[in-house]
Each structure stands twice: as C-alpha cells, then as structure tokens.
Design a protein around this nucleic acid. Structure first.
Lengths: 183, 183
DNA sequence: CGCCCGTGAGACATCAATGTCTCACATGGG
DNA sequence: CCCATGTGAGACATTGATGTCTCACGGGCG
C-alpha cells in the first residue's frame, strides 16, 4: 500500500513547526514510515524543506484568496486575512526563519507574490484614508509576519489561548496599544 | 598578546546575528583568530551561545535600566525602551530564535526577569488608563519581541532605513495601523 | 498459488562540524 | 640574551546526520 506523500508532508510540517531541527529520522518516525521510504518521497532534507515551502505558499495564497483582500474596507479585509491565515501560522513561522538562514540564494518567487499582495492591501488602506501613511506598506507587511510568528509561538507554548490568536494580532496591528479616546 | 575575549564575543554576536548557522571556523576567522584560540576562550559552540545569551541579557537589562521604565507615562517609557534596546535588536532576534529551538531544557532565568519587567510596564500602562486592557501584558511582550525581530531583519536586509527603526516599532505598537480621528 | 511491488530494517560509506592534540613561532619580560 | 606564555597552523579522531544500498517481508493481483 503506497504511502500518501501529502500526508507525510503534513506530518513533517507539524513536527518541524514545533522543532525546526528535527532529524530526518524523527520526521520519518513521526510520519509512521521508515527513513528509507521518506527518502524515496523526498530526496534529502533540502527537498523536503522546498516541498514544505511550496505547501506553505500554497496555503497562504489560498488564505489570501479566501480573505478577498479587495472587498470592503481594508480593515475588514485585514481581519479576514488574519483569520484565514491562522491555520498556516506555525508553518509560516518556520519558513520565515528558514528563509532568514539561507542568505543570498535565490528564494521562491512565491514569497514575493505574497509580499506584494499583502503590501497592496496596506497601500489600499492608506489610499482610502483608513490607514496612516507614515508607516510603509513594506514595514507593515514585515510586522504582520512578525506578529503572526510571535502569536504562533505564544499559542504553541501555551502563553495565550488559541482562540484569541486572530483577535490579538488584528487588534494590536490595527488599533495599537493605546487606549482610544471616548467619542 | 592575549586575545580580548570580550572583543571576540562581540564579533561572534555580529556574525551569528546575520548568519545563525555560521561555523565555529567562520566565527574564528571573523574574529581574526584561530579555531584553537576560539576553543580556548569558549569550549564549544554551546558555551559560545551561552556566553552570547549572557551578553544579550546584560545589554537588554542595561537598556531597560537606561529607559527608566517607571518614570513618566508608560507610553514615554515604552518609547525610551525601544530606543535604548535598538543596538541589541539583532542579537536579541538571534537569541529568541535560538531559544525556540531548544525545547524544554531549562532556559536562562534572565529571560524571565526581562519578560517580567516589560510585562510590568504594559500592566502599569493599563492600570493608569493609558493602554487598553483587552490585550494581555504577556501577549504585548511577545509582540514587542516579534516586532523588534522583524525590524532588525528589515534593517539588515535593507528594506527599511536604520534610522526609522524605533519610530516604526513604537508607532505601530502604540498607535496601530488605523488612522486616528481628528480631535 | 505464486509473482511483484512497495515497504521496513539495517548495514555501510560519506560528509561536515567539532573536540583534541602537538608543535613551531614570536613576543614580551626577567 | 634566554625563557615563558599564548597563539597559529594543522593533523587526527569523533560524532551525528545523511545518502545509498541490499535484502527480507507481506499483501494484493494475476
């Protein structure tokens, strides 16, 4: 009975998300297969990480699609975005860190596409007057990644409840820490 | 002429901040010493990382001291904090990632002290009515770390100017993305 | 029933980073 | 001047992860 490659990939994602330095042997055991079979599916750790990168980009783009970034106010779109991207947060965090390690090398163009789409959302918000214009879309995009990573780890380590994940990130990103004045 | 251990440590911090996977050999070459001498100063990579951890904690605590977290409004204190911690941002980012890798093991108590001091600042802001109370101090602390890391990388990769670092982080953390209504 | 395909288990070689050791050198002090 | 100390250079063994190969097993299929 052939092993389901997709299932192995999901299993690897779940493991490496928690323990980025996990061995190929650990990945195999976690997936319930032998190291030999794992190597037949993914020729080396590098190939595996590339596959995970593809999966992560795919899930993120699906989340962006589902969030319908062009609909309604930018604020609403951002709320939908964070909500939709939550399931991929852990994997995204892993991949961001992984990308920081490999310097210079050509990186998957998928990241550039994602960056562009998210930055475009922030720019739309600025042009519509919803968002302040003294913070660049590029920085806001980076900041969103950072908050998602922090949030994912805070949930994994049990410092905050998983159900609060979207709320925490969106509220901080949109409204900041300062208390609003009463209208 | 004896090698200056402190200088080697700084050099290692600068290198590992940019390339977290750098070899002991690379660390030695960057410091301008031989691998043998490096090993005499720090017996193994683990020891080196521990020393860097100590340095990072030391610098962060110095930054917190210099920021006088108990003086003035919490908002002002936070601005001072980010400004003072900027020089240690890269190292802090490296150490946060490093800490995520080692699971379970007892971690340096210094981190707990830092966390407590920063969380106390946010709590003070909440109690004084400056900060909103629907975001927990623990999450705000994690979020601050995340933003500092994102900011450090954005500067290192040249996506934003170094001089904007404190502004970007503080403005986003305090005010959020939404445009304020005119008073 | 017997064959085939995919798998598991394990042996084995490889490779990179590291820990360890020796030895020569030079530099500064007695 | 000579010696002690700390360093650089390099050889060598070790360790852990990985790539590769063989072989036996077992279920599905003809």
């Amino acid at each position: 009975m052939p092993v389901d490659r997709e299932l192995v990939l999901r299993s690897a994602a779940a493991l490496l998300t928690r323990k980025a330095t996990a061995t190929m042997d650990e990945v195999a055991k976690t997936a319930g297969i032998s190291r030999a079979t794992l190597h037949r599916l993914f020729a080396g750790r590098d190939t595996l990480v590339r596959a995970l990168e593809g999966l992560g980009i795919e899930e993120c783009e699906a989340a962006l699609d589902a969030a319908r970034l062009d609909d309604g106010t930018a604020q609403e779109a951002l709320r939908r975005l964070v909500k939709e991207i939550e399931p991929a947060a852990g994997l995204l965090s892993f991949l961001v860190t992984e990308n920081q390690l490999f310097e210079g090398d050509e990186q998957n163009e998928g990241w550039a596409r994602l960056d562009a789409r998210i930055a475009a959302l922030f720019r739309r918000g600025q042009e519509s007057g919803e968002f302040r214009i003294d913070l660049t879309p590029a920085w806001l995009t980076d900041a969103l990644y950072g908050l998602i990573s922090s949030g994912a780890w805070a949930v994994m380590d049990g410092r905050v409840a998983a159900k609060d994940f979207p709320f925490m990130i969106v509220e901080l990103l949109l409204g900041g820490t300062l208390r609003r004045v009463e209208p």
